[in-house]
């Protein structure tokens, strides 16, 4: 008899649970505002959830983009870059024009590799291993060691090692902005810049700055701010805490003032169209 009572009471619990789920299913706003739009955008996206755009998946990216459409041109969706008609539909859906060129990110190496070797290194041929050994065999502890970790990581073989200078060289045409190399470099030398940028800053100054009395190679930035002063179109913004110049590619007219005035020639032209790799 008691068992029957127990069965009935447990059944009552089951009923309450079902009711709870049902009420929550009804009460919670079924339609998140703008969910329809998010669905629409999500259908356009490749749906690979690869995460290259830095979001937790295509739907999360669609959610963010539907909130502020300008994001579409900053985040890279490598799959999307290929087909233009999807980008057109996305532009209609978002009501904003997507600048595919700046959306198409490129990897930039912040080092010209002119600091000389302290000792010749014959250990494990990988930058990670070499950088563990007292920060690498170059005079500057944050210079590019040129042992090819990024080269091995790059799926589109856009990175090769320049023989005499011993640093990585990035072929901007092949580079698809997948950012796989960024994580591989132990010295954080590579970061992704917009495909539109015109001037490249070839020194890993922001990392070295923390080390007092650091050694500089003759191409290292002396943080003299001449480029900042010289730029007439104020396309250069001086990043205070990192004490490095940052370039606003929209305002830059490629007048070349900053590149000419830089005493240690740390600045270079980046625009692949003008000079593929002007050293």
């Amino acid at each position: 008899m008691q068992l029957v009572a127990a069965i009935l009471l447990v059944a009552l619990i089951g009923l309450l649970c079902g009711l709870a789920i049902y009420i929550v299913y009804i009460r919670v706003p079924h339609k998140v505002p703008g969910l329809g739009k998010i669905d629409e955008i999500n259908k356009l996206l490749p749906g690979m959830n690869c995460g290259a755009c830095g979001y937790a998946g295509c739907f999360a990216f669609a959610q963010e983009v539907s909130r502020n459409p300008q994001l579409a041109s900053q985040a890279t969706c490598p799959m999307l870059l290929g087909n233009d008609e999807v980008i057109k539909q996305l532009e209609i859906a978002l009501g904003v024009s997507i600048d595919t060129e700046s959306m198409n990110k490129k990897a930039m190496l912040h080092c010209k590799g002119s600091s000389e070797n302290l000792f010749d290194y014959s250990g494990v041929q990988s930058c990670k291993a070499a950088s563990l050994l007292a920060g690498g065999f170059k005079r500057c502890p944050y210079a590019c060691l040129g042992l090819g970790d990024c080269m091995r990581a790059c799926k589109y073989d856009a990175i090769s090692i320049d023989g005499d200078k011993g640093i990585a060289v990035i072929d901007y045409v092949k580079c698809t902005g997948c950012a796989l190399c960024v994580r591989e470099c132990p010295q954080n030398l590579i970061n992704m810049v917009s495909g539109r940028s015109k001037v490249s800053y070839r020194c890993n100054y922001s990392e070295i700055r923390v080390i007092p009395g650091r050694e500089r190679c003759n191409n290292g930035c002396t943080h003299c701010r001449k480029c900042f002063v010289a730029c007439k179109y104020d396309a250069i913004i001086w990043n205070k805490e990192k004490a490095v110049p940052e370039f606003d590619s929209a305002k830059c007219t490629l007048c070349g003032e900053c590149v000419a005035v830089c005493p240690t020639r740390t600045l270079e032209y980046f625009q692949p169209a003008i000079s593929p790799y002007a050293v």
């Binding site: 089951g14 649970c17 079902g18 789920i21 049902y22 299913y25």
Partner: peptide, 10 residues
């Protein structure tokens, strides 16, 4: 569908 997990687990 909304109660399928509780049903399966029971």
């Amino acid at each position: 569908s909304i109660v399928r997990i509780p049903v399966f687990i029971v």
